[in-house]
Computed example of a mutant assay.
Amino acid sequence: MKRVLVTGATGFVGNAVLASLNKHGYVPVALVRHGSENKLKHSVEMVKGDVMDKASLLKALEGIYAVVHLVGIIREYPSRGVTFEKMHHTATKNIVEAAAEMGIKRYIHMSANGTRLNAVSDYHITKQLAEDEVKNSGLDYTIFRPSLVYGQDDSFINMLAGYMKRTPVFSYFGDGSYPMQPVFVGDVAECFVKAIDNQSTTKMIYPLCGKNVYTYKHLLRLVGKALGKNIILLPVPEFAIKTGISLFGKANWFPITKDQFIMLTEGNTCSSDDAFKILKVERSDFYEKISSYL
């Protein structure tokens, strides 16, 4: 049986990948830090370790066939040592070096849509540095760049729904025309797992987006509709949000950071659906999915 180590296994995407690995006959091995075991939603093999501790990674990689690296954050907490540089770049450097040292060739990496050399946000800059580590590692890698990933336990769509449940009025930024192409977590997980033994995907980078493009304003209306609420949408000028971010953006209680605002206004769509075609993964309908769980 092929044992596959999953980093970030206790997270939102991680639990979906564990389920997909089971479905396709692999043996999922979850890398877990002490005290995080209760976040696993599936009965799988566990190994203790930390992506910041290379020695623990070398031990965790014993007998492993492939690695699926999912560790990442959407918001920094510098006071706790949780930064984009550390969790994206350094963590990736550690795992690819450990995998190479242990002679493990197959490596699946989760990056993010919008990652590029000339990125503006620190989030995408550190994602690019991580990709560079992967490409220079000598591993048989596949890099996936998902757009906004949604599902029953996501943070973004459920955050929007939580606000909408408490009030009939919801604000949006600017004219709300920012394009978005959210992708279902189960579809993302299927792509990751199906790529493991698909040699045509090695040394490739694929964006992963859902099948429909929505404006941010339209997406908000769909969330409200799924909740059975007729939400009143009110625009907030971009300069007001930028002022709030400059004053409070680093505070944990403020709902949006500078990087999140940059990424939202840049848009989040894909120009290719090659991964879904090659891996034969049918993309889910956004409204149908959120209606099933909101």
Rank of each mutant, 00 (worst) to 15 (best):
M52P: 00
L129A: 11
E45G: 06
E37K: 14
V185K: 03
G176C: 09
Q199I: 02
V149Y: 14
S137P: 08
K211S: 07
F192Y: 04
N113R: 12
V4A: 04
S121T: 07
K242F: 06
L61G: 06
E97I: 14
Y163D: 14
P235V: 01
G210E: 11
A226V: 13
L264R: 15
K59M: 04
V213K: 09
I196D: 06
E133M: 05
G176I: 10
Y216N: 05
M159K: 14
L117D: 09
V68Y: 06
S121Q: 03
K165A: 13
G210Y: 03
K39N: 05
R221C: 03
F276G: 03
L234I: 10
A240H: 01
T265P: 01
I95H: 01
L219G: 10
E62W: 00
N118L: 10
L57Q: 02
D175N: 11
V96D: 01
G72C: 01
D122C: 09
D153F: 12
K217R: 14
P28Y: 00
N230A: 13
K2A: 02
K203A: 12
K250C: 12
M52A: 05
H89C: 13
E282R: 04
I73A: 14
V27T: 13
A240G: 02
T83K: 12
L264I: 15
A99W: 14
E37G: 08
K194C: 09
N252C: 11
E266K: 12
N38D: 12
S137K: 08
K59H: 09
E190C: 01
K211R: 11
I256Q: 02
A119I: 08
G267M: 08
A112F: 02
L70Y: 08
V169I: 06
P146I: 02
D197W: 01
I256H: 04
D53H: 09
I245C: 03
P235H: 05
L58K: 08
V17W: 15
A240M: 11
T92P: 04
A119M: 03
A66P: 07
G81A: 02
L58D: 03
V223N: 09
E97G: 14
F286D: 12
A19M: 13
L61T: 11
H42W: 09
G81M: 05
V281G: 06
D140C: 13
G8R: 12
G103Y: 04
L222T: 08
I196H: 03
I64D: 00
M204N: 03
T7S: 11
V6W: 10
L247A: 02
S171M: 05
L227E: 02
C209N: 00
D285L: 03
F144N: 12
G224D: 01
Y163P: 05
N252F: 15
G224K: 02
Q260V: 07
P182Y: 04
Y287S: 08
L139M: 10
Y107W: 07
A99L: 11
C270A: 15
